[in-house]
Structures are given as C-alpha cells and as structure tokens.
Amino acid sequence: MNQFISLALSNGVPLDTLILVLILPIIVTVIAFFRQVVGIKAFGIYTPAIITFAFLATNEIRYGITIFITVIIFGTLTRLLLKQFRLLYLPRVAIMITIVGFSILALLIIGGIYNRTGLASVSIFPILIMITLVEKFVAVQIEKGGRAAVVLAIETLVISVVGYYIASWDILIRYILHYPWISLLTLPANIFLGKWTGLRLIEYFRFRQIIKPR
C-alpha cells in the first residue's frame, strides 16, 4: 500500500472517503471530456458529479435510476400543472420540490408493496440530492424550454451512469490506492481539454449536411 494512503488511514480518514476524493477528479474530468469532445452537455459539472455519487450511495444503480426518472417525470408534470398559475420562481420551485418529494415517498412505498425492499432502504442523502435536482431542472426549463430540459436531464443520467461504472471499477480503485498521484494526471488532461478547439462529435452530426462532400 502507498505511504500516503497508509498515513491517511492511520490518522483516521475512512477508506471510503479516500477513494471518493481520489476518484472525484477522474469523474469530473470525464464530465468535462463529455462536454468538450463529445458534446453532451448535461446540467453543468456539479449536477452529474453529485448524481454519480448519489448512485454510488444507493445499494443498486437501478434504484438510483428509478428515483432519478421519477423526479424528472414528476418535475415535468408539475411544471405543466403550475404553468397556468404564473407563479414566481422560488414559490414555484418549492411546490415542485414538495410534489416530487411526495412522489418519491409513494415510489418507496410501492416498492415495499412489491417486495423491493432495496428501494426503501436507500439512504436519505441520495434521495434528497435527487429531489433537489428539480431546481436545476426548473432553471433550465425557464432558460432553454421544456424539451431542452428533458434532453439535458437524460444526458445527465447517461453521464452519471458512466461515472458510476467508472467509480465502482475495481481495477481503477486498486490502482488509485497504490498510486494515488495518478488522480493528478487529470490536471494536464484538463489543460488539454480547456484548449481544445476542434469540433465536438455531436457537431459532426449537427453540421453533417455542410460537411458531406457534394
């Protein structure tokens, strides 16, 4: 085991915390890569990162995905419902969080009825994180419209799932515990990404009609 790791462990830093902190740079670099090179936007960098960790904190990823999708569906429905009332921003978000919260509660109960106890035993923090996702969702709806918000939510889900599999990849974790400094390799990688001016993969598709040789 690496000296740095054993130093941290012997001073009472939990192993899980260590792994999460070391793996975080890799997750956010992947998100940056998705944005700059692939062109998948998602809700910025914070939301997909935090959702990734919410997924890690649920016992099984399918429960995480189920909760996520429930939040988006009820977020959209509530928005359509509230549209006619023309409410101001914060009260509107508060109502949405309330309704989404209750819908998650209902989901957990329904899970219990069908003997999906794993769903009900998901700890409170990942659930809270995903409920507050609604605010981001509403903000994007106002800024870019309902359809764009749903697209961005799906993109966030995709990136978070990719992030989840990277963060729970045994070989990577073992390497990182042996050589914690490889986590810092993300710095030059991000400098490269930050200077990258090439077309994003999605843009090759978006501009295919112009690119196509005539």
Binding site: W196, T197, L199, F207, I211, P213
Partner: peptide
Amino acid sequence: IQFFRNSRKILGMNARNLEF
C-alpha cells in the same frame, strides 16, 4: 479527405468560445 477539409471550415462551440 474532402470530409475532413469540409469539417475544418466549420465553427464549433469550442472554437467559438475560445478563439472568437
């Protein structure tokens, strides 16, 4: 080759933000 030549003429988000 034509494909790459054409795609080099296109302004993407990255180049728009960083270079222009």
